[in-house]
């Protein structure tokens, strides 16, 4: 039995290595597991009268995109190098943590790529025939603990997520794949980095989120978008605050991304 377990662990490690080398798939740890669709109560309901969001089946990268993967992308898409990128697509800090325009530095290879703009992240995913996940997709998958698909009411799980915010952002980032996979088989959704979503620019969260029923909020949001039932869902709320503070050309030392893709029905 013990031997078997060790064997499994070895296989998992091997699969991870393969993932990092070239998105190779293994049945145990696919690089982008399929996420079953479902109905989901978001903190951001699509409309005041609609409580649940329907999530169509999709695929989501198991781990965030690494510096190494992003460097590979730049070799075929040099217009996204930090020394060539158009200023409207990325701010001055874009990939500023790299040693050179095509060299992330050895220590950064396995770490999630950060200091990337929404535009650059979108271009990367497009180049893989994929796209950024949408907010509701991200939220749906990120609600899972390692045991439950929706663990948002589990206080221990919530506290575990919040603990990431209880450390300052000055230390180096960990390598991707270091956290336990959640019930969907996805890793690193919490406790490593923030992540871009496709519809980040549409997050019309007021930049003073205490405003109540002003005309603007009514126009964009209807009433009570963040329901009272979820007011303790601080972890999600902080994601939204972060995303809404970022413009599409902005980059930050803790903002990275992963890609998603549609699952074609009938195939």
């Amino acid at each position: 039995m013990k031997k078997l377990m060790r064997h499994r662990r070895y296989l998992a490690a091997l699969a991870l290595m393969l993932v990092s080398l070239g998105h190779a798939e293994s049945p145990d740890t696919p690089a982008a597991p399929a996420i079953p669709g479902g109905s989901f109560e978001s903190v951001l309901p699509p409309a005041p009268s609609v409580k649940n969001v329907r999530i169509q089946p999709f695929r989501l990268d198991r781990t965030p995109v690494t510096n190494e993967q992003f460097a590979t992308f730049l070799r075929t898409h040099p217009q996204w190098r930090r020394d060539r990128v158009a200023k409207v697509f990325a701010d001055e800090q874009y990939l500023s943590h790299w040693q050179a325009p095509l060299d992330p530095g050895q220590e950064n290879l396995r770490r999630p790529v950060v200091h990337v703009s929404w535009f650059a992240a979108t271009a990367y995913c497009e180049a893989q025939g994929a796209r950024l996940p949408r907010w509701h997709e991200w939220e749906y998958v990120a609600a899972a603990s390692d045991r439950q698909r929706d663990a948002r009411n589990d206080p221990a799980w919530r506290q575990q997520i919040l603990s990431w915010y209880s450390r300052s952002g000055r230390g180096p980032l960990p390598a991707v794949g270091g956290t336990t996979a959640n019930a969907f088989g996805i890793q690193d959704l919490h406790g490593v980095i923030w992540e871009w979503v496709e519809d980040a620019g549409g997050m019309l969260v007021s930049s003073d989120n205490r405003e109540q029923s002003s005309a603007d909020v009514m126009r964009f949001c209807g009433e009570g978008a963040l329901t009272m039932e979820q007011k303790e869902n601080y972890a999600t709320l902080m994601r939204i605050a972060m995303l809404s503070s970022m413009k599409a050309r902005y980059t930050s030392a803790t903002m990275g991304f992963r890609c998603a893709s549609d699952v074609r029905t009938g195939s």
């Binding site: 309901p45 519809d199 019309l204 978008a225 007011k231 939204i240």
Partner: peptide, 17 residues
């Protein structure tokens, strides 16, 4: 940016006066 879905969003529950 043409694909951006306007998300109807507010975190109105956390308000101070």
């Amino acid at each position: 940016m043409n694909r951006l879905l306007p998300l109807l969003a507010s975190s109105a529950a956390l308000l101070l006066g």
